[in-house]
Structures are given as structure tokens and as C-alpha cells.
Simulated scan of single mutants.
Amino acid sequence: MSAERPYPFNHPESLALAQEYAEIRQCPGLTRVRLPYGEPAWLVTRHEEARAVLADPRFSRAEASRRDAPRTTPVSPIGIVAMDPPEHTRLRKVVAQAFTGRRAEALRPFVRAQAEQAVQALRAHGGPADLVEHVALPVPIQVICELLGVPVADRDRFRAWSEVVLSTSGSTPEQFGQATGALMAYMGGLLTLRRTDPADDLLSALAEAGADGERLSEVELVQLCIALLLGGYETTATELANFAHTLLTTPGAYARLCAEPESIAEAVEELLRVVAMPSAAAMPRYARTDLDIGDQHICRGEAVLVALSAANHDPARYPDPDELDLNRPPRQHLAFGHGSHHCVGAALARVQLQETLRALTRSLPGLRLAGEVSWKPAAFLRGPRVLPVAW
């Protein structure tokens, strides 16, 4: 058994992938890591092996709920992200129809209007101004509120809760428990309201939803709504700020998009690949049987973590992987995961990222950084808390 390395590697005040990933990728087999909480795990960093693990039914996500799972937060994730088929399949079927590519495209005009409104508000404020406050946060909040049917007036409340729930070490176990409890109570109240006063939104549909003729339990519904809320808002908001920061700090990148708006969709894919947003690999998978990953033997009951960002920087798949290359031919990245747990909201996230970049480059071709960036402290999703810009 190899020695355990302290993990995570990534620095919170950066979007760069830690050098340790490149070092261990050159080593045979896998590396044992020890996270702030839970038992040790094997860490997967190569692209081919990452895809294999994510698609392999011999690994279980649900087993993490029965073990002292390796994790960066005091409590393990709950709900759909911690399930195996057939339970995972049953819940995913309920929401998948709301996140198809066709539905995401149907929402594009609404997303475009929200992005343009946010950028115009930024212009009206005048520079220097915080792009996070004026653009990166408002757009996905409006979109997820529109989709789920969450009152926009509550956006500050669930923003505060999500920051605590997604913290890696900046919140105490008590704060984490309080924020999780508040989110569950809030979503439970909204679901109750939708049962008596339904609307044309996803919450109303979920309140009446069933799968294979079976109604979802109250706990399942609440956990599912929380997963959609956090996944649909926090990740997209963070990535919008990350994309802006990356484009503005890479010579010529932002100007290229301004001059070639038709390349924005492809640029989003390259940005998704190159930006190392997670502070660490998450969602451990437990081997159901003895098996091999490349040159590494994994015993039944051992945990494996897949570092998606490291796999997206694997030089065996991507030449000069740490470089943002807007001319890079699209190749399948793992920013949204792979296999049965591939992000259900990927299509909608792409629409938001594309339309917001389109609104920025069209209205503010002179956009530039205008001050010191303030980074999220101890957050699982790394990114700017304040991104001062001018134009």
C-alpha cells in the first residue's frame, strides 16, 4: 500500500491546476490520498482511466452513505448524487425531461434577455464594477428561479445557504448542518405550496411527479430540489466568473471572442476543459469487487476519487493541456462528468455560458480587469468572490 498524500492539492486563490497532479500522473498506478474527513482513497488523474471508472457499474456511489467516505466537508452529499441504479435512474427520469437539449434551447431567448439585462446593468453602474455581483450571479439565479419556480426575492437567502453547504473548510459542522436544514425546510415549504397552488414550473411538476408509477417521497423530492438548486445556480455562477477571469488574463483571448462571436460555443468547451474549478475530486466511488484500474489493483470496498480537472489536463489526450487554446479542436472533456452521473443540467449550463459571454463581448469589447481579485475562501467551487472590471 502506497503512502497517503494530504489532499486537496489545489490552492483556493487560483484557477490553476496544482502541479502535484502532473507529478502523480507520471507515476505508475494510482496515488493514495487523505482528505480532511473520512477514510483514504485512490486518486484517478488520467483521462482514459477517469472515463472508465465513471462508466463502470462495478463502482458504487451509494456505498459512500454507509461508510466514512473521503470528503472535503463535514457531511457527505445526499440525494441523487449519492445513489446507484435503479434508485438513481428512477429519480433522474423525473427531472431529465426538464433538462433536455431541446428545452435548453427553448429557454435560450429568456437566458439571452437576462444576460443582456445584466450586462446593461453593469454598464449603467460604471466602472470599475464587480462582474460577479452584476453579471455572474444574477443570470443563473434568474434562470434557475424561472425553471424551478423559486421566488427571485429569495435569491440572497439560498446564495448564503449554498456558500456554506459547498464550503470545504470555512464552515463548522454546526454551520453546515444549519444551512442544510434551512435549505431542506425552505424547499419543503415551496413543494407544499405548489401542491395546493401549482404553477407552470418544475417544482409543481416534481410535486406531482412519480416514476414507474411510484410517487417520490418527501425526502427524495426535497433532496432532488436542493441538488437542482445548487447545481443549477452555484456552479454556473462560479464558472461565469471563472471564464471572464481566464479570458481577461490570457493575452488576446477576450479580443478574439469579440472579433469572432461565431466561435463562442467552441470557446465555452475549451474553457470548460481548461478551468480547474473544483478544489478537489469529489463523489467517491466504492469498488463492489476486486478489480484493476490501469496498473493499479483495487480491492473490494476501497474508495476511488476521480479528479475531473486533472483528467481534462492529461497530455496524453490534449497537447499543451494547461494552455487555453481557442483553436483547439473539440474533444470530449469531463467537466460535466461521464456515465450515469453526467450532469443533467449540462445543456442548460452551456446555453447560459454561451449567451452571457455573447452579451459581454458584444456590449463591452473593451472589458478589462480593474483591480485586485478577491477569491472565495475555502470553497469547493473555486472562483472569484469579487472580480473588478472596467471598459
Rank of each mutant, 00 (worst) to 15 (best):
S76K: 07
C27L: 04
L190Y: 00
G149P: 03
F380I: 13
A390V: 01
A153Y: 02
G79N: 11
E269K: 15
R195L: 01
T31M: 02
C343L: 00
R328H: 04
A205F: 13
D130R: 14
D212C: 09
G301A: 04
V53P: 06
R123K: 13
G149M: 03
V219T: 15
T72R: 02
I78Y: 06
V275F: 11
L107F: 09
D201V: 05
L271H: 10
E163P: 04
L334W: 06
D295S: 04
A179V: 08
P128A: 09
Q223K: 14
E270F: 12
N242C: 15
F59Q: 12
A62V: 03
A349M: 00
A390R: 00
P6K: 11
L305S: 13
W42L: 12
G301I: 01
G189N: 09
S263C: 13
A16H: 14
A259R: 15
R358M: 01
G177H: 12
R285F: 11
P140L: 10
G181W: 07
H341E: 03
Q26G: 10
E23Y: 01
L131S: 12
T235Q: 02
W391Q: 02
T72S: 11
G383A: 06
W391P: 00
V53A: 06
P128T: 04
A303M: 10
E49F: 07
E23V: 14
Y254T: 09
G301E: 05
L272C: 11
S14M: 01
D201N: 02
Q142L: 15
F243P: 00
V95E: 03
P85K: 10
D212M: 10
Q354N: 09
A124S: 14
G38H: 10
S263A: 15
L324I: 13
D84W: 06
L240D: 10
W161V: 07
A237W: 08
G126S: 09
L216D: 11
S279C: 06
L147Y: 03
I24T: 03
A359G: 02
R368D: 13
C343E: 00
P40R: 09
T100R: 11
P321C: 11
R157F: 14
G213N: 04
H47D: 06
E234N: 07
H134M: 15
F336L: 02
V95H: 04
L360I: 02
Y286L: 05
E4D: 15
A209D: 14
A255T: 15
H342G: 00
L387E: 07
G181A: 11
S167N: 05
P278Q: 06
I141A: 15
V33Q: 04
G177I: 05
R51L: 09
R34V: 06
Y318R: 00
R385F: 10
P151F: 00
R92F: 03
Q142Y: 04
E116K: 08
W375S: 07
A179W: 05
R368L: 11
R51Q: 13
A307W: 06
S374A: 14
A265M: 04
P40S: 07
L326A: 10
I293T: 05
T172W: 01
H333N: 15
L17C: 08
A18S: 14
L357S: 00
D292V: 08
R285C: 11
A205T: 13
F99T: 07
L137K: 15
C343V: 01
R112W: 09
H333P: 00
G189Q: 09
D295Q: 01
L122H: 01
S14C: 02
G127W: 01
G38Q: 12
L107H: 03
A303Q: 08
L206N: 09
N327M: 12
L122K: 03
T361E: 00
